[in-house]
Design a protein around this nucleic acid. Structure first.
Lengths: 123, 123
DNA sequence: TCACAATATACCGCTTGCCGAATATGCCGT
DNA sequence: ACGGCATATTCGGCAAGCGGTATATTGTGA
């Protein structure tokens, strides 16, 4: 993937928020909805876009679709994700998202439903 | 400037090449043309875009317009410019641009014309 | 097989940014 | 004042991506 294509994925607020959440691990659509407080169709379309650009990978798990960052990442992608991680801390909206994500994750016990599984877990 | 606005400036190949060149110091339009091998109108319009987003600053110097990166840079901007600096080295097009820039800069002696002045020089 | 839950896609109108061609502006030397 | 150079702007056509609404798809459980 060319560098400019990475930036093309980052240049929309919703996509940026999605990728920021994915820095914390895989997530399913319903939880994106909950954390980002955006309608399902919006989330779905951004995820489809990111998937078409190979910026996320998707895996079906029963009724849910689990999205995650690419398991193999170029140096450029790693660098930019790290940069995003740093920069996002300075903006309220990302901090708020991270806060809600934490709550969502915490609200599930060890019997975590498929749509919040940790990386590495199989469906 | 919000983070997403930084990415909006980076998500076009020509703009990205321009900003990459500016990492080496101020430059005038005619030299962007020469180094990027792109028509004048294209360069001018991208520079106008970047200027409107406060991603570059412009200063007239006789017939020339000298463009440079903002003198005051947020932490986010610094981080992303550093990331760009790193990532660009991995792509041929940026290396080629850098090579041509070096030649252009070298082809001027101490009687450097205004349009290739170093940072800090007054018009 | 049926109904439902989770997610994806199609459609529409809209905005933004691209491109190229033409033209306008601003500054200089004569 | 004029002609020329460097740069900027305007215009028209075009493509991509957004937003919302409606609808389709896929898997589950009864």
């Amino acid at each position: 993937m060319e560098l400019v294509q990475i930036y093309e994925c980052l240049c929309d607020r919703t996509r940026l928020r999605i990728l920021h959440l994915l820095l914390n691990g895989p997530l399913c659509v319903c939880h994106f909805q909950e954390v980002l407080r955006e309608p399902q169709v919006k989330i779905s379309k951004r995820l489809a876009y990111l998937k078409s650009k190979k910026m996320v990978e998707a895996e079906r798990c029963a009724n849910w679709m689990i999205y995650q960052l690419p398991t193999k990442r170029s140096a450029q992608l790693k660098a930019n994700l790290a940069c995003l991680q740093d920069c996002a801390q300075e903006e309220r909206i990302f901090r708020e998202d991270a806060g809600r994500l934490k709550k969502v994750r915490a609200s599930f016990g060890t019997d975590t439903p498929a749509c919040v599984r940790e990386p590495g877990a199989t469906c």
